[in-house]
Computed example of a mutant assay.
Amino acid sequence: MSEIQINTTQNVNINFTLSSIGERVVAHIIDLIIKIAYGFVIVWCFEAMFSTDDWFYELDYWSRVAIYIVLIFPALIYTLVLESLWEGQTVGKKILKIKVVKIDGYQATFVDYLIRWIFRIVDLNILSGFIALITVIMSDKGQRLGDMTAGTAVISKKNKVLISHTILEELGEDYKPQFPTVINLSDNDMRIIKETFVIAKKGKDYETLKKLRTKVEQVMETKSDKATVPFLDIVIKDYNFYTQNM
């Protein structure tokens, strides 16, 4: 699968896996089913409230159309509302574990989601989504026209690599970082640090650990009273915390 590199606001480059066309199509179908189901249920319930002699059926055609539009309006803004509230995800995207992100590293705003939503008229409604399919295939960032205009992309949140084999560390939800200057380190720096740390710690190579600590403190421009092993362990976890929460 293709990848995209995003430079975060802390100037850290992070590689993300782009969601596949299949994932996006399935997510879209799930959302479409939800919207259609809502429309049928809400209209059926509304019409069940009236008999053929009630005021509703005495209205002219366009008045009734206006009422139907009001009733199904939540379905029309479904994608916009959920992506805004759930930071780039709808029910379909959550199930498929994909989400919308800004490619410039900043948090996507309501305006970004609004632009994507408006362009759905062209991307997905005209020619039954053919335009979106072609632009996603042709774009090196897997973007449809709405994504190109809003500066967004759709990434996969699935972790297909064991976390112990990467620079990442398992963190609890209540984890509190201790060294903000860890963002001075690059992604490549952290890979080297973790590999060296794991090997040196396992082999009880304290001299290497000491040299590694000195170098890390220089780059981070910090000093700590903690012992070397706990210090390096916290540095790795802090880096993971900051890069995953940007």
Rank of each mutant, 00 (worst) to 15 (best):
L114D: 01
Y106C: 15
F119S: 01
I155N: 09
K176G: 03
V122P: 04
G172P: 03
D104A: 14
G129V: 00
K176M: 10
K158H: 13
V111L: 11
I121N: 07
L168R: 03
N184Q: 07
K141E: 07
V101H: 09
I134R: 12
D104L: 13
P177C: 11
V154N: 07
H165E: 13
I192C: 04
V161H: 06
K157D: 12
L162M: 03
K157N: 14
A132G: 00
D189T: 10
N188D: 15
V182N: 08
S186G: 09
K194C: 00
L145G: 04
N159Y: 04
M190L: 15
T166L: 00
I183T: 14
D187E: 11
V182G: 08
Y175P: 05
M138P: 10
I134E: 10
I167P: 04
S139C: 06
G105E: 10
D174S: 11
I193H: 05
A108F: 10
T166P: 00
S186M: 10
L162S: 00
N159S: 05
N188C: 14
R116Y: 06
Q107N: 15
V182Q: 12
A153E: 03
Y175L: 09
S186E: 05
W117M: 08
L162P: 05
R120L: 07
I183W: 00
K194F: 01
I126G: 11
D189R: 05
D112K: 11
K160S: 04
L133W: 08
Y113S: 10
D104E: 14
A153Q: 02
E173M: 06
T181V: 05
I131E: 04
E169R: 06
V111K: 14
N159P: 00
R116G: 04
L133H: 05
I131D: 02
A132C: 11
E195V: 13
D147V: 09
T196G: 03
T135K: 08
T149G: 02
V122S: 12
Q143D: 03
R120I: 05
L145H: 02
I121P: 08
T196I: 08
A132D: 10
S186T: 14
G142D: 01
N159T: 09
L185M: 07
M138C: 15
S139Q: 08
V122T: 06
Y106I: 14
I155Y: 02
I131N: 07
T149C: 14
K194Y: 00
S128F: 13
E173N: 13
L124P: 01
H165Y: 09
G172S: 12
Y113E: 01
T166Q: 00
A150Q: 13
K141A: 03
T135E: 03
P180G: 13
I103W: 07
W117D: 06
D112S: 12
I167R: 06
T152L: 09
T181N: 15
G151E: 09
I115E: 12
I134T: 12
Q178P: 06
Q178R: 12
T196L: 06
S139D: 15
L127G: 09
T109W: 02
I155R: 07
V161F: 04
R191S: 15
K194E: 03
F130Y: 14
S156P: 01
E195P: 02
V154D: 11
K194D: 00
A153M: 06
D123L: 00
T166N: 03
G129D: 02
T149F: 04
L171G: 09
R144P: 05
L133V: 09
E170A: 00
M190S: 04
K141Q: 08
T166S: 03
I103P: 04
R191N: 15
D104T: 13
